[in-house]
Design a protein around this nucleic acid. Structure first.
Length: 498
RNA sequence: GGUUCCGUGGCCGAGUGGCUAGGCAGAGCUCUGCAAAAGCUCCUACAGCGGUUCGAAUCUGCUCGGAACCUCCA
């Protein structure tokens, strides 16, 4: 089996993955800011890295997966009143900040469960790690890379850049950062405009506030990830993931802070997922083009033609390589919906195939070889920087083979028993365990199955008597209810929920 | 303005020198009481103009168009 290669944003190339501690892997992914509802764009990293997590587990790594919850405030645009996002919203909604945070955290977890993502090993909150963050800031001051002004603390980027490569991750030219003239107020505290806040003094009306050696305030944005990653994954860990839009300044600053405190580069492999776009534009609050997950699942949004099942969204995302942009449209989502249905039915047909009659050797050598190749490539494609799009393409090439065997278009003896069994095993592994797909219509309870069985029997009797009025009525009424009845080639009947 | 990236058939998307990716939509056929599903077949594209090469969607130059980051952002 080939070696796992990961595209490292730091080196801008694919690199063979070797974990620091053999058999173990540490992965940190930037989590949500729970000051509002998650939207479709947010779904991408969590689904992407869920697959990474699942795949590393499959490769028998013991993975510690840390994904934070940002529940402490970040200053808004500097220059304006330095106020906490969460605090300001809380005033508007007349809620306790932590009540608001709890609400959106719950909503986030709810969506993550619907997406069938595996919860991270540790999901630390920023507010729960104020002490660690203060500790790290103190270290930075002691090391001479941070300075305090009026109760706020800033990181000295210029000094860091003199000794280290600030801008390497994001391809930033350091001189330009210093030169760029941007007219922002309230920068006079900073020695240089490229400096970033580690700790901000809190104005009296600021609700979220903590005591610190520099007075009452709240932590800067970048420090939380550095502090929590260090605490749970160590000075240096394997993978750090997040959206491309976090590369600068967030991840760049994270590297700087951690490098000074821990005397080593914090991350071996930086992974960044690309954006979801809508009409070619990034989906984001500032663009006013977001579709919240609750809207997506309910169809309750002007541009949505219908509701989309979370699994359809997951499939939609996995049909694209994570480093490419993904353009949203109703048409694209509906294509994904149909594609997933087709894949899933093929998958179920495969698992239902009775193996007893298969032969030790298949009669169709060519088909057998092709099938084996398609199956073997699952691993290869995943090892090539998690190319789920190609894995799915191969699955779709196998679906006609499966359906043909089921419908006896291809003789049952065409493939050997071992090939069929391998196909069943690998499809299950990839569809369910690695890609994390689930049946969209899982509502087929035992009672419904019983009722359907009854209707099928009645319809069979009607058909035997050539009473097509009754048989058509049963089928048409079920269709109207959203249940599709199919006459199989062998005279049996099957059904699916649309 | 700076940095980086992208431009693939009606739509979504793989794809880094030579082989039909795949999904959806559309057309035809087979199966079928009819239908749906399924199977088979077709639609064979790489923004434009040059260059390198036996050979380029893939490398290179220019042009046009779009995007991301530089400010909170997945």
């Amino acid at each position: 089996m080939s070696q796992l290669k990961i595209y490292n944003s730091l080196s801008r190339q694919k690199e063979a993955f070797h974990s620091i501690t053999p058999g173990h892997a540490g992965m940190y992914v930037c989590g949500p800011t729970v000051s509002g509802e998650s939207h479709l764009g947010h779904a991408r990293p969590y689904i992407t890295f869920d697959v990474v997590y699942r795949y590393l587990n499959h490769l028998r790594y013991k993975v510690r997966y840390v994904r934070n919850i940002t529940d402490a405030g970040h200053f808004e645009e500097e220059g304006r009143e330095a106020e906490d996002k969460i605090a300001s919203k809380a005033v508007l909604e007349k809620l306790e900040p932590m009540e608001l945070v709890q609400k959106y955290t719950n909503l986030f977890h709810w969506a993550m469960e619907l997406f069938n993502t595996i919860p991270p090993s540790i999901e630390p909150t920023a507010t729960g790690h104020i002490i660690e963050q203060i500790g790290m800031i103190e270290q930075l001051i002691d090391a001479g890379y941070a300075y305090e002004v009026n109760g706020s603390v800033y990181f000295d980027v210029k000094k860091y850049a003199a000794n280290y490569d600030y801008g390497k991750l994001s391809g930033r030219v350091i001189e330009e950062l210093f030169e760029t003239t941007r007219d922002l107020d309230g920068q006079e505290e900073k020695r240089d405009r490229a400096d970033f806040a580690l700790w901000k003094a809190a104005a009296p009306e600021h609700i979220m506030r903590w005591k610190s050696p520099w007075g009452v305030g709240y932590p800067g944005w970048h420090i939380e990830c550095s502090a929590m990653a260090t605490k749970y994954l160590g000075a240096q860990f394997d993978i750090h993931g997040g959206g491309m839009d976090l590369q600068f300044p967030h991840h760049e600053s994270e590297i700087a802070q951690s490098t000074i405190c821990n005397h080593t580069a914090p991350v071996r492999y930086w992974m960044h997922n690309n954006m979801i776009t809508i009409n070619g534009k990034k989906m984001g609050k500032s663009y006013n083009n977001v579709i919240k997950l609750t809207e997506l699942f309910s169809g309750n949004h002007p541009i949505l033609e219908k509701a989309y099942h979370p699994m359809v969204v997951r499939f939609f995302i996995l049909q694209t390589q994570y480093r490419s942009t993904l353009d949203f449209s109703n048409e694209a989502l509906q294509a994904a919906e149909k594609g997933l249905k087709r894949l899933w039915e093929g998958y179920e047909n495969l698992q239902k195939l009775a193996v007893d009659s298969w032969q030790l050797t298949g009669t169709d050598k060519e088909l057998e070889a092709r099938s084996l190749k398609l199956i073997a490539e699952f691993d290869e494609f995943m090892n090539d920087d998690f190319n789920t799009a190609k894995v799915l393409a191969n699955m779709f090439e196998l679906v006609p083979v499966i359906n043909s065997i089921k419908d006896k278009i291809i003789p049952a003896t065409a493939l050997s028993r071992s090939t069929i069994e391998l196909l069943q095993k690998q499809m299950k592994l990839y569809v369910e365990d690695i890609l994390g797909l689930k049946n969209v219509t899982e509502a087929d309870g035992e009672k419904l199955k019983g009722v359907m069985q009854l209707l099928i029997e009645i319809r069979k009797e009607a058909k035997t008597k050539k009473d097509f009025v009754i048989s058509d009525k049963i089928r048409n009424q079920l269709t109207a209810l959203g249940i599709q009845l199919k006459d199989e080639k062998d005279g049996s009947m099957s059904w699916t929920i649309n």
